[in-house]
Design a protein around this nucleic acid. Structure first.
Lengths: 223, 223
DNA sequence: ACAAAAGTGTTTGTTGTACACCCATGC
DNA sequence: GCATGGGTGTACAACAAACACTTTTGT
């Protein structure tokens, strides 16, 4: 290949988790300079022959211990001065997980890794404020076009959990009865027959998302 | 900076143009190997300190002569074997222009550059078949969420042109009266007072898109 | 018995869909 | 006068929005 510019490539992952009826984001506290001791989005460099998706999965496994999570790239950030160490182009991803099923682990370059409520995100290192804002916009668009809400919930969930997730992501209030009427028409969201136990109120029916029925349904409406 | 993998970075632009009531894509015939004489999406390498957006604009200006066009990145393709010359990571963009206002120019590495109807795209070089498919999907999602149709039309356009554009992009048929009823409610699409001339049928009112009114309107519905 | 969340229908307004004819122009 | 696309309204169905009370459980 001819003489040609080449670049360091990184991936940054905005990890959205859902727990206690709150949408949260995984942030790390940086162990090393630059921005030592400051908050940042977890990420790392692409290495060797891996794709950007493989690099992002690798980072996510280090961070969360999980291998089964939803990951979607949404933007490339390539401002020449975005990293004080030199020219680094980053591919930003967002990931979705049920935060209750994972413990965050501070990986190599982090002294802490914690869940942070989206109402209350601190100022972040590098251009990560922008990356986070764009991630939330991308999540909102994606969740309208694909059945991604279920990636944030346990496999069995109550309708109230599902409703509160939508309210949280889109920052609005939804009428319970109207919401349930709508869900009832979606036959890819189905009763499991089991119910919640031990709450200090009436037990709730647990539902699950049926991907096969959804695939059939969505291919029908597209044609 | 430590020893670390670095990569050649390119941009590929799926340029959508609209002319004669048809959505088209600009393709080049490659002048050099690999894929010499085959069709491909125009693109080029990112150089020096430019952002990927700047690189894409540079390529588009070489290709179309235009500087005022809409450009949006939509995906990074990073399979290690996607380019037989070596490891090249590419950031894919789609661009929107009124094809009647530009003449395609075959740039450096192309022997031809032509508009090609989207009904009839040939097999493309590299992984460009995939890039093109994803571009069309990204265009459909984007055009539902932003007022991008107007980027493909002349500044003054008839409602029939606007309607046919939607029909073309989404591959469906729309009822003329219902479409016009809907447009009438959008006060950011406004009559210009001038009409088409010289057609061998009744003249049509020309409309224009008012970005200021749209901004006001869209900020209201978001809140 | 009280607190806390689960569950359930009806009415009203808004939006979408289906559908057919006359009009202005060029040739 | 004929071919071509421009322009218009109404009736019905589907969907969205507003709204309050009873049920089941734990303490």
């Amino acid at each position: 290949m001819k003489h040609r510019s080449s670049y360091a490539l990184s991936v940054d992952c905005v990890i959205f988790g859902y727990t206690e009826s709150k949408l949260q984001v995984a942030l790390i506290e940086r162990k090393n300079s630059p921005y030592k001791g400051k908050w940042a989005i977890p990420g790392g460099f692409v290495e060797g022959d891996e794709t950007v998706e493989e690099a992002a999965f690798r980072e996510l496994q280090e961070e969360t211990g999980l291998s089964d999570l939803y990951l979607q790239q949404f933007h490339v950030f390539s401002e020449p001065d975005r990293d004080p160490r030199g020219r680094v182009i980053t591919v930003a991803f967002f990931a979705l997980i049920d935060a209750d099923q994972c413990e965050l682990v501070a990986s190599e370059d982090a002294s802490k890794a914690v869940w942070w409520s989206i109402d209350d995100i601190p100022h972040l290192s590098f251009d990560h404020d922008t990356i986070y804002d764009d991630a939330l916009k991308a999540l909102r668009i994606a969740i309208k076009n694909q059945p991604l809400a279920f990636e944030l919930l346990p496999k069995k969930f109550t309708l109230t959990q599902l409703q509160q997730l939508y309210e949280e992501v889109f920052d609005l209030e939804i009428d319970k009865r109207n919401f349930r009427k709508k869900v009832a028409k979606m036959d890819f969201i189905q009763e499991t027959g089991t119910m919640t136990k031990g709450a200090k109120h009436r037990p709730a029916m647990l539902y699950s998302f049926n991907n096969k029925k959804y695939a059939k349904y969505s291919s029908e409406i597209m044609l």
